[in-house]
Design a protein around this nucleic acid. Structure first.
Length: 747
DNA sequence: GGGTGCCGCTTTTTT
DNA sequence: AGCGGCACCC
């Protein structure tokens, strides 16, 4: 008999609104289990209930580990579990966050400092470049990106440098084999781990260290893994090794939604689960509570075209709904406008609110046309994209200072800030410094401290270097305080703000504002997590992903990539740019199994929709500066016959453009192509003298979109222009520097 | 030896 | 929007 801690009434409540397979999944107790869960089948609910149920059975929360795909999902799940479970304390996190936890806990045993820094892709690229030089591999022949990508793939497959080298045959692999061990040594010396390391080292440790493995297995007795179809070899190994003595691994996933092969995911992990875990209980959740029947038929019909797949059908539980629409437009501008207009009409009529809509795209680059259309039609939107805020140069600089304070061995951060703001330390000096540090096997920072002993470094540069080293030394105590205090002090001592001001006369207001925002973000973080400190703040930023910035409550249309949309749902979904070369992406076209992954991606997009699904494509599209005639996506022809197909545009040719309105009653042409429109004139700093801008005039800025000129002041090179942008507020630019397009008025 | 300004490239998807 | 490469000036 099982232990009973919760009352029967409580248990009934946990199971009350579940269907039979869901109930079985929740109440599966010990032993491996595979839950094949189609889209909209309530898997999140199953996982949360199961955690609560386990705790109600008397399982201690700290014996439970639940792995989700994003930090956001982890946070939401934790909140839900804590709301219904009798006790808190279950670990709910992503594989990567779990990796961090694991590495901090076992750092000493694995030969790492517990204060390690986490390197993102950019950092990884820089370190690869250094390793490339160490290996004397010609970086013109092989790009650092290609090499670091190969190293990443190797780590995802748990291939150590030695094993990789043993299998390296071709030219490229041999180069990678030379770089890989040097990269690894550099990373170790810098006290840094990249994203892949967060899985690689725990996986190796669990595999090779029986004592450690037993201990970890004992600690995490019940393991749940969501989105199992997108696990890679390292993640597979982690799960596997945590579940030997306590073989209670329950995985949830859907092979039809495997979309991360490019980052090492291996769909075989889920397909072979029953073979890997004999006796596993297998449950199918195929009832779909999300989408209308029309939408599900489209999804079923599309995915049925995949060859490498076990046939399965989604069972509709919702209403018939409205037919799926496929619309062909003349060009991307009209496509975006049509969507913006439809959204607006639906909201104005009171049928929907802005947050009911999502535009899902294959590539980030496709958002442009929609931004413009939404701005023009005053439709509020949010783009769910990598926290661009923390990617801004000024913020990255400041964060690099913090990283250096936390970990003085972090050479990549050192190189980033050593001459930022400029201190008279140039490329030549840095090269000498690196040579010196290499020969002495020391960090760049400590080499800088002894700069006067470095041959061929000028006295001046040496002085700058040692002053820099001293500065970092003085600031180091800040690492143990709250992050916003550290940032403030860094800004003050480095005079970073001042350096921004003097470098470029205007338009650096932005940068300063960004830094102020960073301070605010740091303060908010430390208020919410007073015990985590500077290191915690940095870690949080690095591990934060795209969707983590998505705010479902915000009253706006959501725009994001198909990848980011996984796990979400919206009443109305738009899938634009359904064109050959975009979806499926051109780089998948010569490989059938890659095309199948693109089809799965399309399937994920379709199944995000609850009530309405609108697919569309454009006959013409501007792509990398060229206008190309498109071919409809092959996936459109795979949809069932009950989708409603229509063409827009051709018959409407010649009809006058509809006017949209800005604040000040300024009519503007509704639609013009993204760049170099015939109705717009481009002005730039070089060449002929720019035509004067007049207050009230409507202009377009590449970054800020449409705005209205408020005033032009000053003379010559310092002449300034103030513009109020529709979405971005007030900005000031130098007339000579800023590139603006005048937007022609409707007469 | 360092700083500055300009050009051209970038972009498939991401923890 | 950022960055590497390059030419040019101090």
């Amino acid at each position: 008999m099982r232990m009973t801690l919760g009352s029967d009434a409580f248990e009934d409540q946990l199971l009350a609104d579940l269907n039979e397979p869901q109930r079985q999944a929740v109440t599966h107790f010990e032993g491996p289990a595979l839950i094949l869960a189609g889209p909209g089948s309530g898997k999140t609910r199953v996982i949360t209930r199961r955690i609560a149920w386990l705790i109600a059975q008397g399982v201690k929360p700290w014996h439970i580990l639940a792995i989700t795909f994003t930090n956001k999902a982890a946070g939401e799940m934790r909140a839900r579990v804590e709301a219904i479970a009798p006790q808190k304390g279950a670990i709910i996190s992503t594989f990567h966050s779990f990796g961090v936890r694991f590495m901090r806990q076992y750092a000493a045993r694995l030969g790492f400092e517990p204060t390690f820094t986490i390197y993102d892709q950019t950092d990884r690229g820089r370190m690869t470049k250094i390793a490339l030089e160490d290996a004397k591999v010609d970086s013109n022949r092989f790009s650092p990106e290609a090499i670091s990508g190969a190293i990443s793939r190797a780590k995802n497959q748990l291939l150590s440098p030695d094993r990789y080298a043993a299998e390296a045959r071709d030219f490229f692999s041999r180069a990678v084999a030379e770089v890989y061990p040097r990269y690894e040594k550099r990373m170790r010396d810098a006290g840094a781990l990249d994203f892949d390391d967060l899985l690689y080292w725990p996986a190796l440790a669990l595999r090779n260290d029986p004592t450690l493995r037993t201990e970890a297995d004992e600690r995490w007795r019940f393991v749940l893994v969501d989105e199992y179809q997108d696990t890679n070899t390292a993640q597979y190994a982690i799960a596997r090794n945590l579940c030997q003595d306590y073989p209670n691994l329950l995985v949830v996933g859907d092979p039809d939604q495997s979309i991360y092969k490019f980052r090492g995911s291996d769909i075989r992990n889920i397909l072979d689960f029953e073979r890997d875990y004999p006796g596993a209980k297998v449950l199918h959740l195929s009832d779909n509570y999300r989408s209308s029947r029309h939408i599900l038929r489209a999804a079923d019909a599309l995915i049925a075209n995949n060859q490498q797949r076990k046939p399965k059908k989604l069972t509709p539980r919702e209403r018939e709904g409205r037919p799926v629409e496929v619309v062909t437009h003349d060009d991307q501008g009209r496509e975006a406008d049509a969507i913006a207009r439809l959204v607006k009409e639906e909201v104005q009529s009171g049928r929907r609110s802005f947050r009911d809509f999502a535009v899902l795209l294959r590539m980030n680059a496709l958002t442009r046309a929609f931004e413009q259309a939404f701005i023009r039609q005053k439709v509020p939107f949010q783009i769910v994209k990598g926290l661009a805020f923390f990617d801004r140069k000024e913020n990255k600089d400041v964060l690099a200072y913090l990283r250096l304070l936390v970990n003085i061995r972090d050479d990549v951060s050192f190189l980033r800030v050593v001459n930022e703001p400029p201190r008279g330390i140039g490329a030549t000096t840095l090269e000498r410094l690196q040579e010196y540090a290499n020969s002495r096997e020391t960090t760049l920072l400590s080499a800088a401290a002894q700069a006067e002993f470095i041959p061929d470094v000028t006295a001046r540069a040496a002085q700058s270097l040692s002053a820099f080293a001293r500065l970092i030394g003085e600031l180091q105590d800040l690492a143990s305080g709250p992050p916003h205090e550290a940032i403030k002090k860094v800004l003050e001592k480095t005079r970073y703000r001042e350096s921004l001001k003097t470098k470029d006369v205007m338009a650096d207001d932005d940068r300063i504002a960004n830094i102020e925002e960073l301070v605010t973000a740091a303060r908010q973080f430390s208020e919410a997590n007073p015990d985590l400190g500077v290191a915690g703040f940095l870690e949080n930023i690095t591990l934060a992903g795209d969707i983590d910035s998505y705010d479902a409550k915000e009253e706006s249309v959501t725009m994001m990539t198909l990848h980011a949309a996984k796990g979400l749902e919206f009443p109305v979904v738009f899938l634009p740019a359904m064109e050959q070369g975009i979806l499926p992406h051109e780089r998948s076209l010569n490989n059938p199994s890659d095309v199948e992954e693109e089809r799965r991606l399309c399937f994920v997009g379709i199944t995000r929709a609850m009530e309405e699904l609108h697919l569309s494509c454009a006959r013409m599209r501007e792509f990398r500066g060229r206008t190309i005639y498109t071919v409809q996506s092959m996936f459109l022809s795979e949809l069932p016959s009950d989708v409603k197909r229509s063409e827009r545009g051709v018959s409407e040719m010649g009809s006058p453009p509809e006017a949209a309105w800005l604040d000040g009653d300024v009519p503007i042409v509704r639609r013009e192509p993204a760049r170099s429109a015939p109705t717009a004139t481009a002005y730039s700093s070089s060449g002929t003298s720019p035509a004067p801008y007049e207050p009230g005039e409507v202009v377009q800025h590449d970054t800020y979109g449409l705005g209205q000129v408020l005033e032009v002041s000053g003379h010559g090179a310092t002449r300034k222009i103030r513009i109020r942008f529709i979405t971005q507020g007030l900005r000031t630019f130098l007339v000579d520097k800023v590139v603006l397009k005048k937007v022609a008025r409707d007469r």
